[in-house]
Design a binder for these strands. Structure first.
Lengths: 152, 152
DNA sequence: AAACAATCGTTGACTTTTTCAATGATCCGT
DNA sequence: ACGGATCATTGAAAAAGTCAACGATTGTTT
């Protein structure tokens, strides 16, 4: 994403019809959000993606790497890198799949859960900041609409 | 983005708490949307970004490249590439800034507006497809919430 | 049961995108 | 007129994404 600061301005160009283009709105909100999130997560040596992987690892769902790739819209090779990093830092470990011995299940370590709790708290503050313009109800609405758009 | 198809599945992992993380929801919807949009725009030799630039160029707002970079969350050097491409294809041209002779104003050509109209129509169909799960009202709501989150 | 095709994680190569510093031209404040 | 800042541009470096191939394992077909 570009080098914009965290300032919130209402640019002249927002007046254009493209200011209602869903694709662009998603891109912009995603861009500014990623910037803030990654900044907040840096304190814990995480980024958005490694945080997502860690979250799923802590979820008790015992995801395989393939599931992580599908769910996070990543190439399997990217998941390898992310898990490698988390594993080297002792936050996560690979376990053998139960029905399928090809698959590797990603589970969190105690240290992983510790870091994850702290990072999650930081991210929540971060999201509140980003969505400060929305009321509590609108915040809930937005989540619901995004989820519905994604999986009906 | 990863190699997911356009199929809409409800993955097992969506049950996790992270399935309500705004950052992830935005990332996913943006990813799948970009895939569809770029596919639709390919018929016109455009991608999401060049389309955005072309749209602003057609808007009558006479944006400078710096404004484009800020608004689209891009590095100024990326805008140079995008404008170069559009200009070489005769869809856009650079004009000298009026108050500021350093700045270059991007304006559309007649051919640019012609292509833009066609591409815009294709994109609208595309967005309807992506947001097919939402009712018309929800669609409007989503746009409003995204805009409000971005610039209050 | 043997052969076959398909899938999982991994590696490595390759391309694209992003990031950043440096530059000439121009603007602004003093 | 001077000095510092901003604009578009270039080019290089870093990061991210894409893709094909591989061994191991699975499920399927014969």
């Amino acid at each position: 994403m570009g080098p914009q600061s965290t300032e919130v301005e209402t640019p002249r160009l927002a007046a254009a019809k493209i200011g209602s283009d869903v694709g662009l709105l998603l891109a912009k909100l995603h861009a500014t959000g990623s910037l803030l999130n990654n900044k907040a997560l840096a304190d814990y040596g995480l980024r958005e993606r490694s945080f997502s992987v860690l979250t799923l690892a802590c979820s008790g769902l015992e995801p395989t790497q393939r599931e992580l790739a599908d769910f996070l819209s990543l190439d399997p090779s990217q998941v390898v890198s992310l898990v490698d990093d988390l594993e080297h830092r002792g936050l996560v470990k690979r376990a053998q799949g139960k029905q399928d011995r090809r698959a590797k299940i990603i589970v969190s370590t105690a240290e992983g859960r510790r870091i994850h709790n702290k990072a999650r708290a930081a991210l929540e503050v971060c999201e509140e900041t980003q969505l400060a313009s929305l009321t509590g109800e609108e915040n809930v609405q937005l989540r619901a609409l995004l989820k519905k758009a994604l999986w009906g």
